[in-house]
Design a protein around this nucleic acid. Structure first.
Lengths: 160, 160
DNA sequence: GATCAATAGTTGCGTCTGCAACTGTTGTGA
DNA sequence: TCACAACAGTTGCAGACGCAACTATTGATC
């Protein structure tokens, strides 16, 4: 008889508080992300993942990142990133750069136009994050939230 | 000269803590949702939105909900919900029921087969939520998280 | 040094999903 | 009672995205 095999044994259902916290967690995220997405799309004509890619590249050394690293940062699959970068390259915001020492590797590198585009889009994102997230929380709430989120992202590839 | 017009004036950038909290928030959600999605798909052959629809219907009076209400609960657009329900109807898990008093309205109603399917899928979801969310937090962390999330979902259509 | 597994990235294909336009229904104001 | 706006839901269309298969390259093993 199984005793505590977690993968096959029915567990105690969530209690009221656990359930409420879980639903609030999901709902809050869905709500905020959808708002940010709409604002970025509408005001800047940029998808949120595209913005995210530009941000990550701008933060990286030499403004470039391996495709695979960029994919994990942007929480996309490799194939998804390939097409997104295709589009950014077509728009002149990003360049593909082959790696000298490993011919398998491709870097995505942000261009000056990409930096300019990012600088232009940044206020939209900043305002959205403030309006829908940061400014709705007291500093202590924010700290508590962050502290509680830490165990949830522990060991995450994108922790940096 | 504008003074504090929030929509057009550059705001103070996020400080380190705000930025870290924001990124943890986004990352935690992306990570957990992707895990749950994969588990539900893999173990139960059910998409997460489909599972969510079945849950909401099972909780509703008479096991049915207007399409538009269901759409907001499942955070889908009306069109998205229409196709999802199409699929669930094809699988025999949900039925469409016309409203007697308003011919515009369609109810989605969970069938006995849908309830059975939900009962079967529930442990997978429960285990995932526990493993990736609830069990990683102490009760006080969970309470703090919930308290901090509340202002983020205030006034949300799906608050119930 | 040849073979073979592992790795990086891309592409084919199918699915999901949103926007805009459309149909049908209801209620409101003249 | 006759427009006409508002509403509920669906459909056409197109874009985004993931999985699996594929190509090219590298590194490990014998």
């Amino acid at each position: 008889m199984a005793t505590t095999r977690s993968s096959s044994v029915a567990r105690r259902p969530l209690d009221i508080d656990e359930m409420a916290a879980w639903r609030a967690f999901v709902l809050a995220n869905a709500r905020i992300v959808k708002l940010l997405q709409g604002e970025m799309e509408c005001e800047q004509g940029l998808s949120l993942p595209a913005y995210e890619v530009l941000v990550r590249l701008s933060e990286a050394t030499d403004g470039r990142l391996r495709m695979s690293d960029l994919a994990t940062f942007a929480t996309l699959t490799p194939s998804g990133l390939t097409r997104l970068v295709d589009k950014l390259v077509a728009d002149g915001l990003v360049e593909r750069v082959r790696c000298d020492t490993d011919a398998r590797v491709v870097y995505a590198a942000i261009t000056p136009a990409g930096l300019a585009r990012l600088k232009q889009a940044y206020p939209t994102h900043l305002r959205g994050v403030r309006e829908h997230f940061v400014d709705r929380l007291t500093p202590s709430q924010l700290a508590a939230l962050h502290a509680a989120l830490d165990p949830l992202v522990a060991g995450c590839p994108t922790e940096s």
